[in-house]
Simulated assay, not measured.
Amino acid sequence: MLLLVGSIGVCLSIGSAGLSVFDVWGIMLHWTTGIQLGRTEWPESDVAIVTQLRLSRVLLAILVGACLATAGTGFQGVLRNPLADPYTLGVASGSSVGAAFLILFGFQSFIGMWSIPIVSFVTGVVTLLGVLALARSRGTMNIETLVLAGVIVQSFLGAFVSFMVSMSQGVVNQILFWLMGSLALRSWEHVYMVLPFLCIGLPLILMNAQRLNLFAYGERHAAHLGVHVERTKLIVLIASTLLTAAAVSVSGVIGFVGLVVPHLLRLLTGPDYRLLVPLSAICGGIFVLWADTVARMALSPREIQLGIVTAIVGAPFFALLLYRRKLGRGGLGS
């Protein structure tokens, strides 16, 4: 929590507008409490930069990171697979298909600001069911088969989104936004859009944390210990998909957050999901917050897409996980 608070303070103070740290926090103090220190007033443009642009983007980055990391923890717990996350399972791509479809045909405001999140959730659930059905064989689900099924579905959906991009004209930039992920031009409206999903999904997964601990011994053993296996799987998978859809609906496809954060925490704190779930939410927010800060400051005043930054960090980490699994099975030694 101290790291989160410190990250918020640093990232809120950094920007391309040339505002000093004193000005930033003077504006924040006056905006929140009405107390003025030093200057009696600031230009409206400076106040808008700090309170409407930077603060909303910082909070949105934290919420998106918390959603993706918590969803990754839920997927890994139910599937007993450290390589599972919303990106590798294709759920993020499935959610982006729904968003791209609405944008292409101009239906993004059909039922107001909730149009894209609802459709993203539906297409994400359908994608998850398709991946699970493709990976299941004779009632069992092999880990490598599950990851391969996720890659296949993700590639297919990526091609479908690319097809929609080729068919679009005036909205091509909006669809490309979903493919690379970004928090640029986001506002308080998007913060209010994601927050209810996190308030629903996070407690649902946290309430099943102890059951996820028992899943590590196998579904049959968990059932013998009194766990309603199918109901637990359904609740956690739907909650994780809900969180993924909420994040994707405002930021586009941001890969590897749900893979890197839970796995690093598992190495640091152990496999207890009662700790992993809340810590994943906190550290996921920190990870995306710093990734977004790098994205907007590395080539300032131009911005790098957020999905590019997380992929640069996450892809090598994903390769390292595969390498370690191969070492553990004696693949390199043989």
Rank of each mutant, 00 (worst) to 15 (best):
A216I: 13
A159K: 06
A222G: 14
M207T: 11
W25F: 15
V191N: 06
N142Y: 05
G252L: 06
Q108I: 01
H30T: 14
M28V: 15
Q154V: 00
T232C: 14
N173S: 11
S109Q: 15
A223L: 08
L60E: 13
G98V: 08
R80N: 10
G170T: 10
L63I: 09
V122G: 01
I254N: 02
N81E: 05
L89C: 11
S45L: 11
A209R: 10
M141W: 01
R325Q: 14
M167G: 01
I235L: 14
G331N: 04
P262L: 11
G333E: 11
M28W: 04
K326I: 03
S120G: 11
L148C: 07
L19C: 09
T70A: 13
V194L: 12
T145K: 10
Q305A: 14
L128V: 04
A319S: 07
V47C: 10
S56Q: 05
I312H: 03
L83H: 07
L129F: 13
A66K: 05
G226H: 12
A184Q: 15
A246F: 06
F101T: 12
R324S: 09
L279W: 04
A216F: 02
T232E: 06
A69L: 13
P82W: 08
F197D: 00
G77T: 03
A216R: 15
G6W: 03
Q108K: 10
I49N: 01
Q174M: 08
